[in-house]
Amino acid sequence: MYDFEYHKPSSIADAVKLLAADPEAKAISGGMTLLPALKHRLNKPSYVVDLSGIAELQGVRKEGGNIVIGALTRHYEIATHPQILAAIPALARMASTIGDTQVRNRGTLGGSMANNDPAADYPAAALALGATIITDRRSIPADAFFLGMFTTALEPDELVTAVSFPVPEKAGYAKMRNPASRYSMTGVFVAKGPSGVRVGVNGAGPCAFRQQEMEAALTANWSPDAVAKVKQAPDELNSDIHGSAEYRASLVTVMARRAVADAG
């Protein structure tokens, strides 16, 4: 990788100041996506700003009907946190399937959200649960956060500080892994919550998206059979050496059915 200056601020304000000072600067938390990209010299950052020393980004708490998870919370913590397991077990189960043990021991919620890899798991969950992404300067509903492949509503110097997940009545997740990378080939998160039934899809398209026909079908009848007949159109889905858009479209239905079964 190219060399860079390393900074480890201890406050959000200092971190934002560093990121604002240079458009080439990159924030790092777990580094599970950034470091492989840097190793392949896909980026040439001037500064790398390590967020791990910022206490304000830590912690899991219940706020009313929401579980608020600090951006630095690692996948393993989400998978095993008693409050999350009690309130949104599907989110914990989903976190327990991200990457591998070593990724889960390092990777963070905030990093995954801000990176918005099409094959990442959390964006589908955030969409389905109707999460709110809290940043250093505002709150962004999930529906307005994920804009496209590796693109979010974040300003270049804006940091995710936490994600607030409304506790659903029911939620479930199912995915199929890419045989090589083991990222999600297609994953579907379904939830029945305060804002109704929502279905989030990852892996299949260039960006996680909501499947509204499935939401309607599940609103009418919350059962695996209800989504089994809803077909996803393959247009605009990913097609690569591991599977065609048609294949991924079909997986959306299969995984939706399984996710509903998982939710119970």
Binding site: M176, P179, M185, H242, G243, S244, E246, Y247, S250
Partner: peptide, 12 residues
């Protein structure tokens, strides 16, 4: 015999 290939055989 990848998943995508088998799926294609069965469904297409």
């Amino acid at each position: 015999a990848t998943p995508a290939k088998i799926w294609s055989i069965i469904h297409q």
